[in-house]
């Protein structure tokens, strides 16, 4: 009695050996690069799958074998490798099945066709996944690079702002015991802190008793800025000095009144000239014309 596909078991060992040899023959192929043992393992897996599927009438083992192959050589398997495997396998199996019934040969052809379809699909899916991973890595690298650039720019901006603040908060001694601080530009909390630190240091160093803060160069002097000056004034007073606020424009004065800011704890004067005259008076001094000879 004829057993279907009996030839496959008879030819199995020979087919496996021939396929392994064929896989290792092509220069540059991933199989050859992987070595003889890997070629034999691949060949054994595929021929075993063919035998199993011919016996069961399904294509499951072939699909699994192809998926495992693509996974095994993930990242290095090329289309040419896949093509080499399937064409070599087809040539060998059809040669082994020359005496098989036409229906059996057709079944083998169908199985090989399924194998090619599954292999191509898995290969494309694997490539797609690789491309997506590479694209994601590229995006992350680009984002990290942008972030690094932003961080560097922010640090540079902070450094420059600090330089500007340092340069725009000079403490100038104009006479013994009197220092003038002409403020230019935005007066915010950070600058107020810097001003306080520098003032306290200057007072201690020069033994100043009067500090004149000129705000005529400050474009916006609101309630927050006023509170900051009041706090600075309180710190100055703790060292036994007095803070005079000068340079209030009529517009700023109106704004302060409108905002309801209480500046009574501060001595305010309209101009730097008035401030210096007042400071001299506090020190029992005055500016007098030189006597003519």
């Amino acid at each position: 009695m004829h057993t279907p596909f009996e030839w496959i078991e008879r030819e199995r060992a020979g087919l496996t050996a021939a396929l392994a040899e064929g896989l290792g023959r092509r220069a540059g192929s991933v199989f050859r690069s992987a070595g003889r043992a890997a070629c034999e393992a691949v060949a054994d897996g595929v021929i075993a799958a063919l035998a199993a599927d011919l016996a069961s009438g399904k294509d499951t083992a072939g699909r699994e074998a192809m998926s495992a192959l693509v996974r095994r050589f993930s990242g290095s398997l090329g289309y040419a490798d896949l093509r080499h495997l399937t064409t070599t396998l087809r040539a060998l199996v059809l040669a082994a099945a020359t005496e098989a019934a036409p229906a059996e040969r057709q079944r083998v052809e169908d199985w090989l066709f399924q194998l090619v379809l599954v292999g191509a699909m898995r290969f494309v899916a694997q490539r797609e996944q690789t491309f997506q991973e590479q694209a994601a890595q590229l995006e992350v690298r680009q984002l990290e690079s942008q972030l690094e650039e932003l961080r560097a720019a922010f640090e540079e901006k902070t450094r420059l702002l600090d330089v500007i603040r340092q340069a725009s908060t000079p403490v100038a001694p104009v006479y013994e015991g009197i220092v003038v601080v002409p403020l230019v530009g935005l007066f915010d909390a950070q600058r107020a802190q810097l001003l306080t630190e520098r003032l306290l240091h200057a007072i201690g160093e020069s033994r100043a008793s009067v500090v004149i803060v000129d705000i005529s160069g400050v474009p916006l002097f609101d309630s927050e800025a006023a509170q900051l000056v009041i706090r600075t004034s309180q710190a100055v007073r703790l060292l036994g000095a007095q803070l005079l606020l000068v340079g209030l424009s009529p517009g700023v004065a109106q704004t302060i009144v409108g905002l309801g800011v209480e500046l009574s704890s501060l001595k305010t004067l309209s101009s730097l000239q008035d401030g210096i005259a007042h400071a001299l008076a506090l020190r029992k001094l005055r500016i007098a014309p030189m006597a003519s000879r």
Binding site: A27, G28, S29, V30, R32, S33, S76, G78, Y79, A80
Partner: peptide, 8 residues
């Protein structure tokens, strides 16, 4: 053509 760089 599809030109792939071989292993090795």
């Amino acid at each position: 053509a599809l030109v792939e760089h071989g292993a090795g």
